[in-house]
Design a protein around this nucleic acid. Structure first.
Length: 512
DNA sequence: CATGTCACG
DNA sequence: ACGTACGTGACATGA
């Protein structure tokens, strides 16, 4: 029993001790009870549930650059600190478990999903991902060449030298010196130079275009091609991310140091970074992702007949949506119509407003509202589900995923319209995003069992919300791919089929 | 440490 | 008149 036992498991593993199972983890108890609490560390939990102030690590170790490590601290201070850790953890367990006993679906989620997942994440973090540093280094050099060219062009166009990475200096050049139109402001009221603004300004001016390309490449270099090689552990030659199990409000994981859940993919230059995530000798990578999982969950939760049918018939869902809301045959749907329908489908998951949809697809607000109205006419089950969800959220003060994960919405009855509407959007989004998180967690647990019992030559190395990445021996690719698909697709039974697309390659780029 | 920006699902 | 699509983490700048 412990607080954040994944950490302890890593420490023990470094001394060749394998933790074979755990009974309780107070961090996860706290998270399941209230995922929106800002902190789930022991000091915060002790204060909240025991009204007790823990000895903080800073009190015994100091802070900043002069902070001591635990082995440098006098035993007279280290002893009570360590003893308190054990004492408080047990007392927290007693308090938290009593509360979980009163909410059986949360207790089940904790026992069946969050606790078993600790072992899975520990293994994944220890496995790590193989990253080719010299590929990234070459990419950094190429990017630098182009950045230097762009910088020179920018100075010529601006008529002076400045720091292209400084939004503040850019504001002065754009909106004072060159007097470009202010299209949007930052939350603090300053004229924004965000991407959407630069894209718009690029239609009429040269400098924004240069800045756009520079920003994109600088981001890739600073965040990925320069940094990832520095994160390769000397002990394993691999990159070991940390997954955080008690951070997000919805039940998703997050990833830090480095974040491997936001490696570029949406455009071609960025996608190249994935070429550096490689399979080891004699292996390939398999990337397996759930197809349209959140929309399938919406179909299941809403029980809308049209949506259920579309999925059981294996239709291209955005095309089917376009046909319904634009009143054309599926075969006649244009690419623009499909793109708009796709935005409508995303909007539904996000708790869409006409304003947001209009901005996204670049049409008038009235036209966007028409899309929304027609959608709800064609899919009345979805409208009913959304209305019921808002109503239930207001009554209960929380919403739930399919597996009973709970998300509290303190602002759902706020007198402030903006805040209330934001809470309503969360109420719509959280059950779908959260159920998807529950499903992939169950799949990961099942996958780990299979790997441990029957496929010790397969490694699960990454999770990216609806996608799992594996290293598989080349000799067993087809067999493993079929099994991976099967485990993910049968993780839970819904009223619609769950479909998994799996790709194979020598690196993540090829496998995707 | 706040801010603006941008990478992902 | 204003500001709004959901959920994250990391970077550079500049106070």
């Amino acid at each position: 029993m412990g607080q954040n036992l994944k950490y302890d498991a890593h420490v023990l593993k470094n001394h060749d001790i394998s933790l074979r199972g755990i009974a309780q983890d107070t961090m996860l108890q706290s998270y399941v009870l209230n995922s929106t609490a800002s902190k789930h560390n022991m000091d915060a939990l002790a204060k909240k549930y025991l009204n007790y102030d823990c000895i903080s690590f800073e009190e015994i170790a100091g802070k900043g650059v002069k902070q001591l490590t635990f082995n440098q601290i006098d035993i007279k201070e280290a002893g009570p600190y360590a003893a308190e850790d054990a004492d408080i953890t047990l007392r927290l367990h007693e308090a938290l478990h009593e509360q979980l006993e009163e909410k059986k679906s949360l207790l089940t989620l904790y026992n069946d999903v969050e606790l078993p997942l600790v072992q899975v994440l520990t293994y994944m973090e220890q496995q790590g991902a193989l990253v080719n540093a010299s590929k990234l280094h070459n990419q950094s050099l190429q990017i630098q060449t182009r950045l230097t060219e762009l910088e020179k062009q920018a100075f010529d166009l601006a008529g002076e030298e400045f720091n292209l990475a400084s939004p503040k200096q850019l504001q002065v050049i754009f909106f004072e010196k060159l007097e470009l139109p202010i299209l949007k402001k930052t939350p603090k009221g300053q004229p924004s130079t965000a991407e959407e603004v630069l894209v718009e300004l690029s239609r009429d001016y040269e400098l924004p275009k240069v800045i756009l390309e520079h920003r994109g490449l600088a981001k890739l270099k600073n965040t990925y091609t320069d940094k990832l090689p520095l994160m390769i552990a000397s002990s394993t030659g691999r990159v070991h991310t940390s997954y955080h199990q008690a951070v997000t409000a919805t039940g998703r994981l997050s990833s830090t140091d480095p974040n491997l859940q936001n490696i570029p993919v949406r455009n071609e230059e960025g996608r190249k970074i994935r070429q550096a995530f490689e399979a080891p000798e004699g292996h390939v990578l398999i990337a397996a992702d759930y197809s349209q999982i959140e929309l399938r969950i919406m179909a299941h939760l809403s029980k809308d007949k049209g949506l259920l049918d579309a999925f059981s018939q294996g239709k291209d869902i955005h095309r089917a949506t376009a046909a319904e809301i634009m009143g054309v045959d599926e075969v006649d749907v244009t690419s623009e119509q499909r793109r708009h329908a796709k935005a409508v489908n995303f909007g539904l998951i996000y708790g869409m407003s006409a304003f947001g949809l209009a901005k996204q697809i670049g049409v008038g607000r009235k036209e966007a509202q028409e899309y929304i109205n027609t959608y709800f006419e064609r899919y009345p089950g979805v409208r009913e589900y959304m209305d019921n969800t808002r109503e239930l959220a207001a009554k209960q003060g929380y919403v739930e995923t399919l597996f009973g994960r709970r998300l509290y919405l303190p602002e759902i009855n706020s007198k402030n319209g903006m805040r209330r509407q934001a809470a309503e959007r969360t109420a719509i989004n959280a059950p779908m995003q959260g159920t998807a998180a529950d499903i992939i967690k169950k799949a990961m647990i099942a996958m780990h069992k299979w790997i441990k019992e029957e496929a010790t030559d397969v490694s699960m190395i990454l999770q990216v919300h609806d996608e799992l990445i594996f290293e598989v021996p080349v000799t067993r690719v087809e067999e493993a791919k079929a099994k991976i698909k099967e485990i993910m697709e049968s993780a839970v039974q819904l009223d619609v089929p769950l479909l998994v697309d799996a790709g194979v390659g020598a690196n993540w780029h090829e496998a995707h």
